[in-house]
Design a protein around this nucleic acid. Structure first.
Lengths: 131, 131
DNA sequence: ATAGGCTCCGTAGTATGGTACGGAGTCAAG
DNA sequence: CTTGACTCCGTACCATACTACGGAGCCTAT
């Protein structure tokens, strides 16, 4: 197998920092290739692909723990189990959206109340918090 | 001024843990009353109110740094400045909701694709991440 | 062959909002 | 006045996802 990358070139190819790769190695999210006697570790295109997979999964809101599961599911080729992981994430996202909508509503209401208020000593936001 | 509370009673009155109070004292979010020679610190109802204010603000999604500002604004009695802080928070919440909606949409689409998929080796979620 | 850059590795620090622990001092009830 | 509970204080630790640092070893170009 061709091993074109030093760690710095791997980092550049995947768009992450060297220290991030080392961090993922410590977490065993990515493999640490053997170090030849008196030499340095070298990396493959598959290593770059794996890092890019992780980056995309993170951009989609998955935590590193979830990414670990996704990588295992990729190897296991189980679409059903993967679907379940995505569905669980979707439920979490939905719940968070609902929370934020409620918060949004309350903030918007308080701001509107501020605009209608003329007494600095009776700020609706402060009164809501000090109640 | 009446000082009815020991720190444990203050914590119970405000619904927080003792260590949370000490943590807030370190952050200077709440005052640390003087310790009498050879005695223990005692707290007032105002201290309990301040802790409850913090708790409500946190429940509304404000960080402790923002809570610090809110407490100062409470003292300054500036409804306008408070409104601006709330408006900034509202913009952040809106932005986060938009992000999560996009994510939700993508996840829902991938899950639907999984339901239509019959080949475990071509899971839409995995293909999206491995692209 | 040597200079300067890169790699390796372990440890420590960042932000956030706390929680846990341990020893010494203090307080209150019996 | 003793005993057990509470307080004080500093430090360390939790999760999350990194980032920084330092010294030794290695690699490459001149």
């Amino acid at each position: 197998m061709s091993r074109p990358y030093t760690i710095a070139r791997l980092a550049a190819a995947a768009g992450v920092h060297i220290e991030t790769i080392r961090y993922y190695q410590r977490l065993r999210l990515v493999p640490q290739p053997a170090r030849p006697f008196g030499g340095i570790r070298r990396y493959t295109e598959a290593d770059a692909d794996r890092l890019r997979f992780i980056k995309r999964a993170q951009a989609m809101g998955f935590t590193l723990v979830e990414v670990e599961s996704l990588l295992k599911l990729q190897a296991r080729r189980s679409c059903h189990a993967t679907r379940e992981l995505a569905a669980t994430k979707l439920r979490l996202v939905d719940a968070r959206i609902r929370e934020l909508r409620d918060l949004r509503k309350e903030l918007a209401g308080l701001i509107a109340d501020c605009d209608a208020n003329t007494q600095d000593a009776k700020c609706p936001v402060i009164q809501r918090l000090a109640s």
